[in-house]
Design a protein around this nucleic acid. Structure first.
Length: 383
DNA sequence: CAACCGTGGCG
DNA sequence: TCGCCAAGGTT
C-alpha cells in the first residue's frame, strides 16, 4: 500500500480518506460525537454502572435485540444474579427462565457457561484484554470490544450493526448490510475513532447515533452531529448505504400441540438441547398436515406414553414466525387419565407457579390459545 | 462460510 | 397481514 508515486490515483481518491488513515478527521468526528452523546444519550440502566459483569450481561441481551425489550430483562436478571459468582452457581433452568421471551436462548446458556469460565479461570473478574475476553463462551468479536471499551475504557473496536452502518456511511462504503459488519477495515476505522478520545464514550456514542439518528431507514441527517464529515451525506447516498439485504424465503411447517391437563396443571416437555428452542419447555408437539386429523394429536401423545381423553380440538392456527422459518401450530386440548411418566422430559406445570425452566413465547402463545392462563414473562411466580 | 438460532414492534 | 429489522455467536 506504500505510495509508488504521487501521480498514482487510487480508485478511492474521489472519496474521503478512511477514518483509519486520517487522524485529524477521526479527531473531529470523535469530538462531535462525544459532545452529542453527552447531550442526547438515553438514560439506560446499563449505562448507570461500570460493573464489567453487568455490562457483559447487557451486551449479551442486546445481541440482535432492541433496547426497549432488554431493559426489563436486564434489571430482573441482575436482581436475581447480582454477581458472576451467583450466575455461575445457578442452575441452567433458572438462567433460561430469566431469558424467557428474549429469544436466541443459546446465548443464555453461553452466558451461564461464560460465568463459570470467568469464576474458574479468572477468579470471578472479567479480563480487561480483548483477546482474553474472546476466549470466554458467548463473547465474540463485538462483545469483547464492547466490554473492553465500555467497561474498561480501552480502544477496542465494537462493530455492531449500528456502528457498521455509521462507519459505512461516513466513509461511503456501499456493501450489502449482511456483509458490511464483517468487512475488513471497519474494525480499523472503529479503533481509530475510539483512539481519538474516550473509548467508553465513543463506543456508546457511535451505537447511540446509529440507533437514534443514523437509522437504517429515514436517517435524521438534519440532526446528525457528524453530517458535515459524512461522505454518504455529501454524495446523496445515505439511503443506499448499506445496500438492502437479501432474505431467503422462510419455509413453513405445521404442528399439533397437545395441551394436556392433569389436575390443576398442564404438561410441558423439555425440548432437545441444541436445536430450535433447545432446552426450553413447551407442550408436546407433533408434525401434521394442513388438515389436522385425530391421528396427528394421537401421535403427539402416543410416543410419550400418555393416556389422554381429548376434550377439544384446534380452533385455528397459532402462527409463529422465527427468523428463518414459520410454524403453524394447532392446539388440541385433553385431559390425562393417569399421571405422566416420571421420565424427566415431562413435567406438570401449574400456571401461577414458577415454570420448570425457560418458557418460550411460542409455548405461552399455544397455552393461551388453548385457554391456559400463562405465567408472567420473568419466570417468577405470578400473584 | 453460510446456516442456524427468537421475538416484538413498526409501517 | 406481512416483510423488515435490532447492541451477534457458533458451527
Amino acid at each position: 500500500m506504500a505510495a509508488r508515486g504521487a501521480l498514482v490515483v487510487r480508485p478511492g481518491a474521489m472519496g474521503p480518506r478512511s477514518l483509519a488513515e486520517d487522524p485529524a478527521r477521526a479527531a473531529r468526528i470523535a469530538e462531535a460525537l462525544s459532545c452529542w452523546f453527552r447531550a442526547h444519550a438515553r438514560d439506560l440502566p446499563f449505562r448507570r454502572t461500570r460493573d464489567p459483569y453487568a455490562i457483559w450481561v447487557s451486551e449479551v441481551m442486546l445481541q440482535q435485540t432492541r433496547v426497549a425489550t432488554v431493559v426489563a430483562y436486564y434489571e430482573r436478571f441482575l436482581a436475581r444474579f447480582p454477581t458472576v459468582e451467583a450466575l455461575a452457581a445457578a442452575d441452567e433452568d433458572e438462567v433460561l427462565a430469566a431469558f424467557s421471551g428474549l429469544g436466541y436462548y443459546r446465548r443464555a446458556r453461553l452466558l451461564h457457561a461464560g460465568a463459570r469460565c470467568v469464576v474458574a479461570r479468572y477468579g470471578g473478574a472479567l479480563p480487561r484484554d480483548e483477546a482474553a475476553l474472546r476466549t470466554i463462551p458467548g463473547i465474540g468479536a463485538y462483545t469483547a470490544g464492547a466490554i473492553a471499551s465500555i467497561a474498561f475504557d480501552r480502544p477496542a473496536p465494537a462493530v455492531d450493526g449500528n456502528v457498521a452502518r455509521v462507519l459505512a456511511r461516513l466513509d461511503g462504503i456501499e456493501d450489502p448490510a449482511e456483509q458490511v459488519a464483517g468487512r475488513p477495515g471497519l474494525a480499523a476505522r472503529a479503533r481509530a475513532l475510539l483512539s481519538a478520545g474516550r473509548p467508553r464514550v465513543l463506543a456508546q456514542a457511535t451505537m447511540e447515533l446509529g440507533a437514534l439518528v443514523c437509522t437504517p431507514q429515514a436517517p435524521a441527517c438534519d440532526r446528525c452531529p457528524v453530517a458535515g464529515a459524512c461522505h454518504a451525506h455529501r454524495t446523496g447516498r445515505v439511503d443506499r448505504i448499506p445496500a438492502p439485504r437479501r432474505r431467503p424465503a422462510r419455509p413453513q411447517a405445521r404442528f399439533v400441540a397437545a395441551v394436556l391437563r392433569w389436575r390443576d396443571g398442564v404438561v410441558l416437555e423439555r425440548r432437545p438441547a441444541g436445536g430450535l428452542l433447545g432446552g426450553l419447555w413447551c407442550p408436546p408437539l407433533a408434525p401434521c398436515r394442513a388438515r389436522v386429523r385425530p391421528r396427528a394429536p394421537a401421535r403427539a401423545v402416543a410416543d410419550r406414553g400418555l393416556a389422554v381423553e381429548w376434550t377439544g380440538s384446534a380452533a385455528g392456527w397459532v402462527r409463529h414466525a422465527f427468523t428463518h422459518r414459520v410454524w403453524l401450530v394447532a392446539a388440541w386440548s385433553g385431559e390425562l387419565r393417569a399421571p405422566p411418566p416420571e421420565s424427566g422430559a415431562l413435567v406438570v406445570w401449574r400456571p401461577g407457579e414458577a415454570p420448570p425452566g425457560g418458557l418460550p413465547s411460542l409455548a405461552r402463545r399455544i397455552l393461551a390459545h388453548a385457554g391456559v392462563e400463562a405465567a408472567t414473562k420473568d419466570g417468577g411466580t405470578a400473584p
